[in-house]
Design a protein around this nucleic acid. Structure first.
Lengths: 137, 137
DNA sequence: GTGGGGCTTCCAACCATTGGAAGGTCAAGG
DNA sequence: CCTTGACCTTCCAATGGTTGGAAGCCCCAC
């Protein structure tokens, strides 16, 4: 099938399929006489794997490792789990960072009248004289 | 003061200060006869404002708006609050996305033995035949 | 055989940031 | 005075993942 159909069936855009091929995440697709890329059901299966890994937030480098483990029937599930757990840790750290931002902003927003007057704890906080402890960094 | 000192005092790297100048987030710095950029305390104050806004996850375009409001003594705090609340909403959405990933991964990881055997619900889930409902998309 | 849609490659942009190269400046110390 | 090393300048490139567009070829249906 053509790349467009593979894109439709896998959930990955044709642009990205070409990109993944270019960077070596997937092997070069077969080509028809016309030069058109030709995809099999197995290829689409692999693309769907990539789609789901991406939806779970894995980076391309990790997806590459996951693909390797997927293909390897003798894989050790410990390796997969280790990858997943590292990723979970990273996601949690990110969530914590974002949550800290939300907490700060909410506190400030709660104290801001949000009317026509200029006084605003949000702006005041951003413009406060010190950002870092005087000696640190 | 030189750009390096301004960087140290503001928490923004010299590279980024030049970049922010280039894209117009901050006005072009004064120059010494040598061509070196010259920063005042007020400039550093502004850079610190940017640093804190950035630490709260605001995008450069929003920081630009915030800077405008900061400079405007007649600002309406409602505008600041609206910006902040939009940002909070965006952050929350992001957190929810990441949390959904964590939840999925945790469920799968909990069911994975993580040993030398190949069976692994994580890999199985990624390789499952359907990603999207057959007709959707 | 013509039109429209799909395919090809290549190049650029996004966002914020970092790195490096090549060359000029400054200040301290010999 | 000269060297040394730290600092500054500009410019160009890369990151990561994705999207957009242009120019040109292919395929199918009418």
């Amino acid at each position: 099938m053509n790349i467009g159909e593979a894109a439709r069936q896998s959930g990955i855009s044709a642009k990205m399929i070409r990109y993944y091929e270019e960077i070596g995440l997937i092997p070069p697709a077969d080509r028809r006489a016309s030069g058109y890329r030709d995809y099999s059901e197995a290829d689409v299966h692999e693309l769907r794997f990539i789609c789901r890994a991406r939806d779970l937030g894995f980076m391309v480098a990790e997806i590459s490792e996951l693909l390797g483990l997927w293909r390897d029937r003798g894989r050790r599930s410990g390796e997969v789990k280790a990858l997943a757990c590292e990723h979970i840790t990273r996601l949690r750290r990110k969530i914590d960072d974002l949550q800290a931002m939300v907490d700060t902003l909410e506190t400030l927003a709660d104290r801001c009248a949000g009317d026509d007057r200029p006084d605003c704890p949000i702006i005041e906080r951003l413009g406060a004289p010190t950002c870092f402890p005087p000696t640190a960094q």
